[in-house]
Design a protein around this nucleic acid. Structure first.
Lengths: 339, 339
DNA sequence: GTGAAAGCGCTAACAG
DNA sequence: CTGTTAGCGCTTTCAC
């Protein structure tokens, strides 16, 4: 690693100009004679020069990098996170936006106290200019830690506790309503819900919207089993619902992965989807398409949301945005075969 | 962003010592009086000091960061990558190893020419010290670009063209044999294969091992349909196999995702797995467990392989490893229900 | 329009 | 064991 590439100095010598001029050319600052520009560019070419990021960051105080943080807990966290295609969409959306602004996204996992403090450290050191964070736990301390460390941050989803922070979200309540109304409209009468964790605002809102729509239609209270966003938890919830309410003919699962688990159980128990039991999921992740049958689901425009997060962060970084930015998107029902 | 945190200088003043001493304490260099150490640590505490990464990197020429590159092509690449749990395991393994060495993994996608040059740029700038790369395309130019830029790199899997580069892989040929022998041993006689892309060494080797084992057992040539590692391609291949060889009673799919696609088709066409048609997958990803029925599959110790990659890279970085490191693991058959 | 010079915050010899 | 002294490679006033 004693590979010391050429520096500005080398290029300047080669081009017969000063470091300052080379710097201006490299950074596209005008006020440089077009002729000289060519000479410099030529010199850069022949020397194979590439600017040193550390030196640059040291003076500009910018790393041109933003951290994309996924926070949660447990062993094999990265593997579990990737099990839900949801995250691929977030990353995709963020990457797409950032790429155009020449910012580098770096994905990091914060699944333990150690990992969290390493992440905060990374930001405090200035290795990244800000963070986009997706938090999977209600009691996740990461957002607070980041805020406390004065790191510019934008969250995916409104945090469980009120925090002076920017975030991007969808109207989950409305999403729950959409699911209920669709099930009702197609004729399902004995409904049940596999909810998201109720310590998450999204979980509460989706369920509240679902329930309110049902109440509004005079379709009283429904059985609810709480899931954990995983395939297994969806399957387990479905089993319990079938035991306790064998007459069920419509289920709203708070994400697609749980809906898939529910479908598997239904099929195993000989119920046809949607003929015997209709199933509505949430997210419209790739699972919705590959699931058998393909899922009717409430779509979150995740890529757009991620792009909005990146945009908000970029705004904060260049100081054009003050205070908190909060963007709430509308969900949309996507009808496929499961309901 | 005019937030200029406290510097070494500030801490030194607060503690009444020189910058050098504070630096020593921060970096855990001994030769510092224990008493002074406490004073310094106290000063760090009260000032809320955190070292500046750029300044440090500038002199150490190390970013304490390694890039984890996933290279391929196409729209929504990140989303597709995440659709295969395989990557979660790679990330998991690498992260686990790196964490202990206080190195930060940064995940980046290189799915277009633009993205690739940005990635190379990132490395050339010194923002990361080296790269672990997972390449999904036979003609991927990224490894070459990295090598050319003199970036320390370790690949996941042997590259299609011989390259003077370190890599970690498994014995795919042996994996194909394991699959064939298992299918034969359980009594399947009319076999077929859904292969991986044949421009990939892994794809060729898996198929060769499968075929050779069959030949060896006197079970002649088998129909082969090439897939693309995706669920859909597995399903499509299965459909074609059923059309052309309805008598098939055993299938080897070159990864779990394609095996899952095959299982879905088989079920839809009224074939029981494994009773009518046995299916063997490859990878032992989380899909193998969640698939119905759970897949018998050839396991790649992906987490260990990723850790080995990180270890090899770390070796190169500290200069203790010279030339290329090549590690080849043995695959292992995991028997579940599908065969 | 261009160059000279002053750091950015840190580590690493080198003295003492 | 501790302090002094040089830079690391770059951007950025400030003169010219």
């Amino acid at each position: 690693m004693t590979k010391r590439g050429p520096t500005l100095e080398d290029v300047a010598r080669e081009a017969g100009v000063s470091r300052a001029t080379v710097s201006r050319v490299v950074n596209g600052v005008r006020n440089v004679d077009p002729g000289l520009q060519d000479v410099v560019r030529q010199a850069i070419e022949t020397t194979g020069y590439s600017p040193n990021g550390a030196a640059r960051s040291l003076v500009t105080r910018r790393a041109e990098t933003v951290a994309l943080l996924v926070s949660g807990a447990g062993d094999g966290f990265a593997a579990r996170v990737f099990a839900d295609p949801f995250f691929g969409r977030i990353v995709s959306g963020a990457v797409t936006y950032l790429r155009g602004r020449a910012m580098h996204p770096v994905l990091m996992f914060a699944e333990s106290d150690e990992a969290r403090s390493q992440v905060v450290d990374y930001l405090r050191r200035g290795s990244a200019d800000g963070a986009l964070v997706v938090s999977l736990q209600a009691d996740d301390p990461l957002p607070q830690m980041l805020l406390h460390a004065r790191v510019p941050v934008v969250l995916f989803a409104r945090p469980p506790q009120p925090l002076p922070v920017s975030y991007v979200d969808i109207d989950h309540y409305q999403g729950g309503r959409l699911a209920a109304e669709h099930l009702l409209a197609r004729g399902s009468r004995r409904l049940a819900a596999i909810s998201a964790p109720q310590d998450l605002p999204a979980g509460r809102d989706r369920l509240a919207g679902f329930r309110d729509a049902l109440d509004h239609a005079g379709r009283g209270p429904v059985p609810v089993v709480e899931g954990a966003f995983t395939l297994d938890s969806g399957a387990a919830a479905m089993i319990r619902i079938l035991e306790e309410h064998p007459e069920v003919d419509g289920v709203f699962a708070a994400n697609d992965l749980m809906a898939q688990g529910a479908c598997q159980i239904l099929r195993e128990q000989g119920r046809r989807v949607p003929d015997d039991v209709a199933v509505v999921g949430f997210d419209d992740s790739s699972i919705a398409v590959t699931c058998r049958p393909p899922l009717t689901t409430v779509r979150q425009p995740v890529e757009k949301m991620a792009a909005a997060m990146a945009e908000a962060l970029a705004g904060h970084l260049q100081g054009s945005a003050s205070g908190q930015t909060r963007v709430v998107f509308d969900p949309e029902l996507v009808v496929r075969e499961s309901a």
